[in-house]
Design a binder for these strands. Structure first.
Length: 886
RNA sequence: GCGGACGUGGUGGAAUCGGUAGACACACAGGACUUAAAAUCCUGAGAGGGUAACCUCGUGCGGGUUCAAGUCCCGCCGUCCGCACCA
C-alpha cells in the first residue's frame, strides 16, 4: 500500500496542463452532430482578485458544463470580463493609475485565479468589454437602435454634486450628501440618451410565461417591475379662482376609479407643471418643492422619507360632483415618472394616502366594505383597506361589488365631457420606464453621436467607427474626463463638415452585459453578432448568477436581445416575417446564493480580514484577537463576502493551502445552491478530509484489485450485491441531482457511497466479504471517480490514472446505471395509525393494495396500536404509505 | 415605503408529487491504533420520560384545510435580496 498523501498543488497543475494541451474544452464553431449546450455564468467585474465567494458561481457552472460534456453534448462554456465601470475610474483618481491599466492588470490576475480552479472553459473566446474589439460592435448596435428609433434623447434627473460639479451614482450619495465632497446633493435635469424598452413592455411581460426554466420568483419580480395595470385617466377641472393662469385641469391616472367617492385630496409631484406654476408666486411652496428635490433620485430614499405635503391652495372639482372641491397638494411621495405625476387620494383604500390624510387632517371616507365586515361597525382606523368588497358611501355605486363599480364609473366618465372632451379614458399603464443609458464618465463605451450647431444630433457614420476612448485623459479631478479633454470631442460634422463636438456621455455598463452572451457565439466576427453561430448556440441553455440580478440585468438583456434582433443582429430571424428568430437570450436561469463569512472589527471600528484575526474558543464562548497587536476584536455579523467588509478568503491563499478541488467541493457541499453558504474553517477542513479520503480509498482498492482484476464474476455474495446496488443507485441519483443543479444533494450521495465502499473494503481486508466483493469494489470506485469528475476534476483524473487508465477522464462519457440494480423487488413502507407512524412493512414492490393492507394490519405493533378497535378506513398509497384510520 | 424570497437538532442542511422528519456533513462524546500526539478507523446522539419494549412532544409563532402538513391556505414575528447611475 502506497498510502501517500495526495499532493493537490502539484497534481492540479499537472492535469490542468494536460487538459490545455489536449484543448478539450474548445467548443466547435458550429454544428457538429451533437446536441449543443451553452452554459454561462454571469461574467465577473474585474475588481482585483477572486475570492472564495466568487468561485461558487463558476464552480456550479463548471460542474454542469463538465457533466453535459460527459453526457455527449457539444458544450460552449466561455468566460469574459464585464470590464467597464466606476471602480476603475475611482482607482484612477485615488492611485493615479489609468483605468485601462488597472483593469487589465486585474484581469490578468483573475484569469490566472480562475485557471487555477480547473474550470472547463473555452479560453479562446475570452474578451473584455472595455476592449475596443468589443465596444466598437456595441457602438454599431447603438447606431442601429438609434436608426430604428429605439435610442433617443430626453431630459431626466441626475444626482448633482454642486461642489465637485459632477453627477453622482446613487451609491455615491450617502445620507443625501456627495461621498467625496460631503455637499448636499440636488436633483438636476440633463438631456440624456434612452433606450425605448417600454416599446417592448407587453412582449417582455407576456413572454415571461414561456420561461419555464426560470425561478418563479424572478418571473414574478420582473412582472411586478414592468407593472402593467389597467386603469383610467381622469381629467379634473380646476377651480378657476384658485388655479394658476393657464391651468384649467389636472389629469390623474388611477387603477381604482371605483373608490372615487372616497377621494379626499389630490397630490402632484414637486416637478409637476402645476406645482411649478403654483410655486411661482408662493415662496413657501417653492421652498418645499426645492426640499423635495434635495432627496436625490433614488426610489428607496424617496419612498422611505417621511410623507410630507404642501397645500397649493388650488382646488379641483370632483368629476362626479362639480360642487365638491378637493385640495391639491404637492407631495413628496408622488413620482413624476409614473402615470401623469398626479394622483387623487382615497385614504380609506391606500395606506400611504391614509397616513398623509391623518397627518394633514383630511377626510377619510370608507367606500369599500370587506365581505366579512359588519356594515354597522366598519370604520377605518389607522389601517387602510385595499381589497375588494361591496361599495358604500358611494351614491350610485352603493351595493355594487368592486369590479362592477369600476366598470360603471369608467363608462360614466368616458361618456362625460369636460371642455368637449371625455373626462375619463381607459388606459393601460406601466411602471417600467425607458432605460437611461447616459453616464457622464470616462470608463464606458462612448456613445457614437456628434452634436452639430446646424445639423443637430448626427450619428457617427458606421465607417468612422470605432469611436475610441482617448488614452491621455486626466483623472485628477471629479467630472467627466471626456468632456474636459482638450481635443477629443473636436470633430467635423459628418453631414455639413463644419466643426462639431462629440457626445461625451458613455453608456451604462448594463449595456455591455446585455449582449455579451451573443458575442461569445462568435467572438472574432466582424459583425457584432454572427447570425449562423448565434442561431446555433443561442439561447444560453443554462445561465447562472446571483439573485441580485433578478430584475435589471436580466430584463435589460431580454430587451436588448429583442431590440438588436429587430435591427437584424439576432439569430437570423427576419423581423418582417413570421420567423423573428430566438427572442429570449436565456432558456434556463439559476440564481445561486452567496458565500458568507463572519465579519471582524477592531476597537477603532475598522474592518479586519480573517487572516489578521485569531479565534479562540473555550467551548462556550468565542473570542477574537488581532494577531499583530493582541488587541481584542469584536466578532460581527455573518455577511456576504465583500471587499468592503474585508470578510473575504482569497482564492490563491485557499488553493495553495488546500487545492482547487477542496474549494470546489466545499462551495458545492451542504447548502442548497440557491441559498447562501457560510464559510467556516471547520467546513473547509471537512471538505479537504474527504478529498484525501477518496484518494486513499482509490489507492487501496487499486492495490487490492490489480493482481486479481479478472472479468466480472458469475455470481455475487450479499455484500458485493448490496455494494453494487448502492453504487448504481448513487449513479442514478448523482446524475439527476447534477441535472437539477442540486449539488449539495449530489455531494451527500457521494459521501454515502464512499461510506459504503469504506465498510465493504474493511470487510474485504478482513477476508469476510464473500464472492465478487473485490470486483464490486473496483466497479464502485471506478464509477465513484467518474461521478466526482465534474465536481473535483483534478483528483478524479488522478484516481482514474491510478486505476490503470491512460485516457483523460474529462473525455470519458458519463456511465450508465444498470436498471436491474436500481429497482428493488422488496420495498419498505411506513404504516401509520391515525397519521402516526406505528410500524413498517416490507413487501414486494408490485404487491397490490389488498396485499399491502393485509400485511399492514397483520403487523404486531399495528395490532397492538389498534387495541382491538377496527379500522374505519385504510388508506393505501402504493409504494408510499399505509394509514389506518380508527 | 413598495416588490420578492427564506426560517427544520449544538451547526450547515436532507425530505424531487401532501405520505417513515432529521439523510449526508460539521461539531461533540466514548472506544481502537500510538510511548504520545496528529492522522485514520469504529460507535453514540432531536428533546423529555421509561430498566426495557415503548410512549409523549417536535420543522420561527398562532390558526385552518386533510386520512396525513416541514410541504397547501390565512395572520404575525425575524432575516435576506431588489428598487432603475454599484456591478
Amino acid at each position: 500500500m502506497s498510502n501517500e498523501r495526495y499532493n493537490a498543488a502539484e497534481r492540479e497543475k499537472h492535469w490542468q496542463t494536460k487538459w490545455e494541451d489536449a484543448d478539450i474544452f474548445r467548443a466547435t464553431e458550429t454544428e457538429d452532430g451533437r446536441e449543443k449546450c451553452y452554459v454561462l455564468e454571469m461574467f465577473p467585474y474585474p475588481s482585483g482578485r477572486i475570492h472564495v465567494g466568487h468561485s461558487r458561481n463558476y464552480t456550479m457552472g463548471d460542474v454542469f458544463a463538465r457533466y453535459k460534456r460527459a453526457k455527449g453534448f457539444n458544450v460552449l462554456h466561455p468566460m469574459g470580463w464585464d470590464a467597464f465601470g466606476m471602480p476603475a475610474e475611482n482607482a484612477a483618481m485615488e492611485r493615479k493609475v489609468h483605468p485601462g491599466k488597472w483593469t487589465h492588470e486585474n484581469i490578468a490576475v483573475m484569469r490566472e485565479q480562475l485557471k487555477a480552479m480547473g474550470l472547463s472553459i473555452d479560453w479562446s473566446r475570452e474578451f473584455a468589454t472595455c476592449d475596443v474589439e468589443y465596444y466598437q460592435h456595441q457602438q454599431k448596435l447603438f447606431l442601429d437602435l438609434a436608426e430604428a428609433g429605439l435610442a433617443y434623447r430626453k431630459s431626466s434627473k441626475v444626482n448633482w454634486d454642486p461642489v465637485d460639479n459632477t453627477v453622482l451614482a446613487n451609491e455615491q450619495v450617502i445620507d443625501g450628501r456627495g461621498w467625496r465632497s460631503g455637499a448636499l446633493v440636488e436633483q438636476r435635469e440633463l438631456t440624456q440618451w434612452f433606450f425605448n424598452i417600454t416599446k417592448y413592455s407587453d412582449e417582455l411581460l407576456d413572454d415571461l410565461a414561456t420561461l419555464e426554466k426560470w425561478p418563479d420568483k424572478v418571473r414574478l419580480m420582473q412582472a411586478n417591475w414592468i407593472g402593467r395595470s389597467e386603469g383610467l385617466s381622469i381629467r379634473w377641472a380646476l377651480d378657476a379662482k384658485t388655479a394658476p393662469a393657464g391651468h384649467s385641469e389636472l389629469e390623474v391616472y388611477t387603477t381604482r376609479p371605483d373608490t372615487l367617492f372616497g377621494a379626499s385630496f389630490m397630490a402632484v409631484a414637486a416637478d409637476h407643471p402645476l406645482a411649478i406654476a403654483a410655486a411661482e408666486n408662493n415662496a413657501e411652496l417653492a421652498a418645499f418643492c426645492e426640499e423635495c428635490r434635495r432627496l436625490g433620485t433614488s426610489a428607496t430614499d424617496l419612498e422611505t422619507a417621511e410623507k410630507q405635503g404642501f397645500d397649493t391652495g388650488i382646488r379641483a372639482a370632483h368629476p362626479l360632483d362639480p360642487n365638491w372641491l378637493l385640495p391639491v397638494y404637492v407631495a413628496n411621495f408622488v413620482l413624476m415618472d409614473y402615470g401623469t405625476g398626479a394622483i387623487f387620494a382615497c385614504p380609506s383604500g391606500d395606506q400611504r394616502d391614509l397616513d398623509f390624510a391623518r397627518k394633514y387632517s383630511l377626510p377619510v371616507v370608507p367606500v369599500i366594505l370587506p365581505s366579512d365586515a359588519d356594515p354597522a361597525r366598519f370604520e377605518i382606523d389607522d389601517e387602510a383597506y385595499a381589497g375588494d368588497g361591496t361599495m358604500i358611501n358611494s351614491k350610485f355605486l352603493d351595493g355594487l361589488d368592486t369590479k362592477t363599480a369600476f366598470e360603471k364609473v369608467t363608462d360614466k366618465l368616458e361618456a362625460a365631457k369636460l371642455d368637449g372632451k371625455p373626462v375619463g379614458k381607459r388606459q393601460t399603464n406601466y411602471r417600467l420606464r425607458d432605460w437611461g443609458i447616459s453616464r457622464q464618465r470616462y470608463w464606458g463605451c462612448p456613445i457614437p453621436m456628434i452634436h452639430c450647431a446646424d445639423c443637430g444630433v448626427v450619428p457617427v457614420p458606421a465607417k468612422d467607427l470605432p469611436v475610441k476612448l482617448p488614452d491621455d485623459a486626466t483623472f485628477d479631478k471629479p467630472g467627466n474626463p471626456l468632456d474636459r479633454h482638450p481635443t477629443w470631442k473636436d470633430v467635423d460634422c459628418p453631414k455639413c463638415g463644419k466643426a462639431a463636438r462629440r457626445e461625451t456621455d458613455t453608456m451604462d455598463t448594463f449595456v455591455d452585459s446585455s449582449w455579451y452572451y451573443a458575442r461569445f457565439a462568435a467572438p472574432s466576427e466582424t459583425t457584432p453578432v454572427d447570425p449562423i453561430a448565434a442561431k446555433y448556440w443561442l439561447p444560453v441553455d443554462q445561465y447562472i448568477g446571483g439573485i441580485e440580478h433578478a430584475i435589471l440585468h436580466l430584463l435589460y438583456s431580454r430587451f436588448f436581445f429583442r431590440a438588436i434582433s429587430d435591427c437584424g443582429h439576432g439569430t437570423g430571424g427576419d423581423p418582417n416575417s413570421g420567423n423573428r428568430g430566438a427572442r429570449e437570450p436565456f432558456d434556463a436561469l439559476f440564481t445561486q446564493g452567496m458565500v458568507t463569512h463572519e465579519t471582524y472589527k477592531s476597537a477603532k471600528g475598522q474592518w479586519l480580514p480573517p487572516t489578521e484575526v485569531k479565534l479562540e474558543s473555550d467551548g462556550k464562548s468565542r473570542k477574537a484577537i488581532h494577531i499583530e497587536t493582541g488587541a481584542p476584536v469584536s466578532i460581527g455579523g455573518i455577511e456576504k463576502m465583500s471587499k468592503s467588509k474585508k470578510n473575504v478568503v482569497d482564492l490563491d491563499d485557499f488553493i495553495s493551502a488546500y487545492g482547487a478541488d477542496t474549494a470546489r467541493w466545499f462551495v458545492l457541499s451542504d447548502s442548497p445552491p440557491e441559498r447562501d453558504v457560510l464559510y467556516t474553517d471547520v467546513g473547509v477542513d471537512g471538505a479537504h478530509r474527504f478529498v484525501q479520503r477518496v484518494w486513499r480509498q482509490v489507492d487501496e482498492i487499486a492495490v487490492l484489485t490489480e493482481k486479481n482484476s479478472t472479468g466480472q464474476p458469475g455470481s455475487f455474495g450479499d455484500l458485493a450485491l448490496s455494494l453494487r446496488k448502492a453504487t448504481h443507485k448513487c449513479l442514478d441519483g448523482v446524475g439527476s441531482s447534477i441535472e437539477g443543479l442540486r449539488f449539495n444533494v449530489a455531494v451527500a450521495q457521494l459521501y454515502e457511497l464512499t461510506n459504503t465502499i469504506g465498510s465493504t473494503l474493511q470487510k474485504s481486508k478482513d477476508g469476510k466479504a464473500g464472492d465478487g466483493a473485490d470486483w464490486a469494489l473496483r466497479e464502485a470506485v471506478t464509477l465513484l471517480v467518474q461521478m466526482m469528475a465534474p465536481m473535483i476534476p483534478h483528483l478524479a483524473e488522478e484516481c482514474w490514472a491510478r486505476l490503470g487508465n491512460n485516457t483523460l477522464l474529462a473525455n470519458q462519457p458519463w456511465p450508465e446505471a444498470e436498471r436491474a440494480l436500481i429497482v428493488d423487488d422488496q420495498i419498505t413502507i411506513a404504516v401509520q395509525v391515525n397519521g402516526k407512524r406505528r410500524g413498517e412493512v416490507t413487501i414486494a414492490r408490485d404487491a397490490d393494495k389488498d396485499a399491502v393492507e393485509a400485511a399492514a394490519l397483520a403487523l404486531e405493533p399495528i395490532v397492538r396500536a389498534l387495541d382491538g378497535k377496527s379500522a374505519r378506513k385504510v388508506i393505501v398509497v402504493p409504494q408510499r404509505i399505509v394509514n389506518i384510520v380508527v
